[in-house]
Simulated assay, not measured.
Amino acid sequence: MSRWPMVQESGDVWEKFALALADMARDLLAQDSVKGTLERIVEHASVLINGCDEAGILTVRRGEVSALAATSDVVRMADRIQQDLREGPCFDAVTERQQLYAIEDLRQPHEKWSRFAPELRKLGMGSMMGFLLFTEDDELGALNVYSHRPNMFDETAQRAGWILASHAAVALSAARTHQQLSHALETRHEIGEAMGILMERHGLSEDNAFNVLKKASQDHNIKLRDIARKVCETGERPT
């Protein structure tokens, strides 16, 4: 992929951006894991958003912040700072569910993020944006976009980032759904195999074999899939 300018609100520029998004969508859907999808999202962001030098994705789940993808260790450090301080535009985009937060010039004092902005300057950052990336029942995420120079993210870049984040959210949701379905099928297969072993070796009916697995899971507070896997490995009836 090559960087292309977005300096004017011309139809030609947005047409090129639309084509680039189509390429990004195909690339994201081609990834075989959620991790791969996340990594490709930040790589595309660093190319398609004018002025972007680095990008990363963080999530907040039940108040805990996690960095999921980053283009460099510097971004991971920036995400860590937001996590430790619980302060910053990306953290606010997630916790307050705002579409966009931005710091145009990190050289200037920032009243809202008075601790975070100076730390980011130490990492060599000049400006940044945070876009709400996706939402689930108890988890929110943000796409973080950084530039080493101040005042790099104009209205066009902000619009491009918001559009990219919206498309990326759809691809990420699809990747997660696919992963969940794959895990569900694997779990179903392992449970079925474990039930077959209990029926054959221990003379249990189908219902009793499943109840034995379920009771062991409840009694020991272990996932049903893990109980089934142990039965498959040892052939023993769980106690």
Rank of each mutant, 00 (worst) to 15 (best):
Q179K: 02
Q99L: 08
N50D: 15
Q83S: 11
Q83H: 10
H220V: 07
N211K: 00
D137H: 14
A174P: 14
A157R: 13
L120E: 06
D79Q: 12
S66E: 06
G161H: 10
N151C: 13
L123W: 02
H148E: 15
F134S: 08
L181W: 05
D53P: 04
S10W: 05
L213F: 00
L68N: 06
S66A: 01
C90P: 06
I191H: 00
P238Y: 03
F91T: 08
H220L: 03
S173H: 07
K230I: 07
H167L: 08
R237N: 11
F153S: 05
A18R: 04
S147T: 00
H202N: 10
W14K: 09
E139H: 10
A216L: 09
G141V: 09
M24K: 01
D23K: 02
L133G: 07
D27C: 12
K112E: 08
T239A: 02
S166Q: 13
M199R: 14
L28P: 09
T177K: 08
L224G: 03
F134C: 11
S33D: 04
E104I: 13
V74D: 15
A165R: 12
H220P: 02
E119H: 13
A20I: 07
T135E: 12
T135K: 11
V42W: 08
G235P: 03
A78N: 04
F116H: 11
L21D: 11
P118F: 00
A25H: 11
L224H: 07
D73L: 06
Q82Y: 04
W162T: 14
R26M: 06
L123A: 01
L100P: 06
Q180R: 04
E200W: 14
F17T: 01
P238T: 04
L19T: 09
A102N: 00
E39N: 05
D79T: 08
D207K: 13
G124P: 13
N208Q: 09
E206S: 15
L133C: 06
R86L: 05
R40Y: 04
D219L: 11
E64I: 14
M152N: 05
E233H: 01
P5A: 00
A175P: 06
K122E: 02
F91A: 04
N208D: 14
A67R: 12
G51C: 08
L19V: 13
C232H: 09
L85M: 13
K35N: 09
M1N: 06
M199E: 05
A160H: 11
V34D: 05
D105Q: 02
D12M: 11
N221M: 07
Q108D: 01
L172P: 07
S2F: 00
P89Y: 01
D12Q: 10
N151L: 13
L19P: 01
S114V: 11
R3M: 10
E200A: 15
S182G: 03
V212K: 15
E200D: 15
S114E: 10
N144V: 05
G88L: 09
P118E: 00
M128E: 15
L58S: 13
L181E: 01
A69Q: 01
A194H: 09
D154K: 10
L185W: 00
H44I: 08
D79M: 07
F134W: 10
D73C: 03
